[in-house]
């Protein structure tokens, strides 16, 4: 049986918002060490991986591994009906065909229980190899969101170039071009670690979708290496992270 309590529904809302634009259905795998989710988008261009460790939960118990096939739009509807500061407990039996969500207001004066039907999903699980990234950039998540939004006005493709001098985002389209450069700051709000310089091209639409995770974290980590997907990682408090991988565009 699974029993997992989030202190605030707001966090679960943010997690669902960070997932639902990129994947519509996915399996949440629950074990005694926490919850994991991994899914490709429909076009198999990107992959999202969510990890929530037990440390973050107010209460966590999972006696036997449970896989919960979720429809994220439905989950979003249920979560939306609760107040952000409600506590929420997820409960599922060992061979569950439904997930119970129990919301409890601060002073316990209001409780709301929802049963969500689970799906039988047959999902491929992909192995993500350990990668030594050539460039690792950390910046405020709001800055990254702003850059992705501004870039996608100009072109479908965004070129990311990273050198010791800084990281540059470029877009070139019918209406003109845009270049935004960021350099390492002494304040430490932007850090750039470069083993070797790299230039890669990515679909701006996906980068923009990843920034739905911005409310989860003040910081975002962007990792690049030659001939491997881009990694965009948002930490989630004491729980873990949400990671987005995006396959590069290559010259024809």
């Amino acid at each position: 049986m699974l029993e997992a309590r989030f202190g605030e529904t707001l966090l679960l809302k943010k997690i669902v918002d960070a997932l639902k634009e990129i994947i519509s259905q996915s399996t949440l795998d629950c074990t005694e060490t926490g919850m994991q989710l991994q899914s490709m988008d429909n076009s198999h261009v990107s992959l999202v991986a969510l990890s929530l460790q037990t440390e973050g939960f107010e209460k966590y118990r999972c006696d036997r591994n449970v896989s919960l096939g979720l429809d994220l739009k439905s989950l979003a509807k249920v979560v939306k009906s609760a107040s952000g500061d409600d506590a929420v407990t997820l409960t599922a039996a060992d061979k569950a065909d439904k997930l119970l969500l129990s919301f409890e207001s601060d002073n316990k004066s209001r409780t709301a229980d929802y049963e969500l039907k689970l799906l039988n999903l047959d999902q491929d699980h992909l192995g993500i190899p350990e990668t030594n990234y050539a460039c690792i950039v950390q910046m405020p998540s709001s800055e990254f969101a702003r850059i992705c939004r501004d870039m996608s006005m100009f072109s479908e493709s965004v070129v990311i170039s990273c050198t010791k001098q800084g990281i540059k985002f470029s877009a070139n389209g019918d209406m003109g071009s845009a270049n935004i450069k960021l350099s390492d700051t002494s304040k430490g709000d932007i850090t750039i670690d470069v083993d070797e310089p790299i230039t890669q091209s990515f679909a701006g639409r996906y980068l923009n979708t990843f920034t739905r995770a911005t409310p989860l974290s003040d910081r975002v980590k962007i990792c690049l290496a030659p001939d491997v997907p881009l990694l965009v990682e948002y930490p989630i408090e004491d729980y873990g992270y949400i990671r987005y991988y995006l396959a590069p565009k290559v010259d024809e």
Binding site: M40, H44, V45, S46, L47, D124, H125, L126, G127, I128, P129, S157, S201, A203, V228, P229, Y245, L246, A247, P248, K249, V250, D251, E252
Partner: peptide, 14 residues
């Protein structure tokens, strides 16, 4: 001209 690659070509099925 660039072409979009698939994420499944980098990460193999387990």
């Amino acid at each position: 001209n660039t072409t979009q690659t698939s994420i499944a070509s980098y990460f193999k099925k387990e």
